[in-house]
């Protein structure tokens, strides 16, 4: 069933919290709406459902990739041209460790940036979102309800009842 978005814009945290309570009182759950803010708020401040992310996987995967490539590269080049220096082993482990450290961090960092972009659902080429209000980056708080088409009027009413400065937008998303 097609889901639509409606955004309530609130002037401050207290009225946004009232809007969230109003949505819950109208039968919506934390899964039905998300909060848009211009700065981070304490987790669960508006009763929204925290979404888990898997960002930690990206630096681990990147680090392992970089380490493996560095190991292959340094061991490979030394094994390909074996030169005994000062009676030391062909594989110069202390020198190799520096490359492995650097490559591990380099790839972990690149994977992390990719992970941030992927997990943040960016880039969004159509703009800031299906329904958005620029006042959010001014300190206003948005409650974006994404619900079935027939529940849009109820969501709109709940957001309005919560003291929204404005209720904007209705776009079919899926």
């Amino acid at each position: 069933m097609a889901r639509q978005n409606v955004l309530g814009v609130y002037a401050d945290a207290d009225s946004a919290a009232a809007g969230a309570r109003s949505l819950r009182a109208a039968g919506f759950t934390g899964e039905d709406y998300e909060v848009l803010t211009g700065n981070p708020y304490p987790e669960g401040a508006f009763g929204d459902h925290p979404k888990r992310n898997k960002l930690f996987v990206f630096p681990i995967a990147g680090g392992l990739t970089g380490f493996s490539l560095a190991l292959l590269f340094t061991a490979g080049t030394q094994a390909a041209f074996p030169l005994v220096t000062g009676g030391k082993p062909i594989l110069a482990i202390p020198a190799m460790m520096i490359i492995m450290y650097e490559m591990s961090l380099l790839f972990a960092m690149i994977f992390t940036v990719m992970g941030v972009i992927f997990e943040s659902r960016l880039p969004r080429f159509s703009g800031a979102g299906p329904v958005y209000d620029p006042r959010i980056t001014l300190g206003y708080i948005g409650l974006l309800a994404t619900v079935e088409e027939e529940r849009i009027p109820a969501a709109r009413q709940a957001l309005q009842d919560g003291g929204a400065a404005d209720v904007v937008g209705e776009t079919t998303t899926a």
């Binding site: 929204d48 960002l55 630096p59 940036v113 969004r124 959010i136 980056t137």
Partner: peptide, 23 residues
């Protein structure tokens, strides 16, 4: 492009600052 300040984005943002800062 696309940043709208969702909870998911802020949580990701916080993690990214921690991880990249440590690197």
């Amino acid at each position: 492009r696309g940043w709208s300040g969702t909870d998911r984005q802020w949580r990701m943002h916080k993690s990214a600052l921690g991880i990249l800062g440590a690197f």
